[in-house]
């Protein structure tokens, strides 16, 4: 796969961006930008898991030699958790699931697709939804299976689908 480079925003090359600001108003703005950056980056890379202990280019800009320290990363990720854009997977390893669309939004996208393509009342495999040719131009194509599962579970509680499992691989029936 050919992956285009992620287009970092200008703040990324702005050294103070990597230090948590003291002034409350400024810090609020800074957090907002960081949140946007993380979501955009994860979406671009289709990366559902972010580990705050990884020395990823996301938190470390080689060009200006700046790094966002671990504590700050955690603060920002917590902010993301508060807005339903992330969830902590493991506290010890520092991994988070990132939702550039919230679970609620994902479930709407998926359900709308199922409705529009007349797939209600029929059984579909996770594989064909995530990797099939029919869903290639869909936003959830090749989405992380855990996130996808969470969105479907959300739909299931609303009675809009039912998840099935045979031999460890999953299918879903939309209603």
């Amino acid at each position: 796969m050919t992956e285009s480079e992620f287009d970092f925003p200008w703040e990324y090359n702005f050294p103070p961006f990597f230090t948590i600001q003291k002034h409350a108003e400024t810090r609020k703005q800074q957090f907002l930008r960081w949140k946007e950056l993380i979501l955009a980056y994860a979406k671009h890379k289709n990366q559902a898991i972010i580990n705050i202990n990884d020395e990823s280019e996301l938190f470390h800009n080689n060009k200006i030699n700046r790094t966002l320290d671990r504590e700050s990363r955690e603060m920002i990720l917590n902010e993301l958790c508060n807005s339903s854009n992330a969830a902590r997977v493991n506290k010890n390893t520092g991994t988070y699931e990132i939702y550039w669309l919230t679970i609620e939004e994902w479930s709407n996208v998926i359900y709308t697709y199922a409705l529009n393509s007349g797939m209600t009342n029929s059984v579909l495999t996770f594989f064909e939804l995530l990797n099939g040719d029919d869903s290639k131009d869909q936003e959830f194509h090749q989405l992380n299976e855990q996130v996808f599962m969470k969105a479907l579970k959300h739909l299931e509680t609303k009675g809009k689908c039912e998840i099935m499992e045979i031999d460890g691989s999953f299918g879903v029936k939309f209603f």
């Binding site: 029929s122 059984v123 579909l124 495999t125 594989f127 064909e128 039912e162 099935m164 045979i166 031999d167 691989s169 299918g171 029936k173 209603f175």
Partner: peptide, 14 residues
Amino acid sequence: RVTEQDKAVLQLKQ
């Protein structure tokens, strides 16, 4: 609401 047929379909699709 999943019927036996649904399970069969799922197996075929898998």
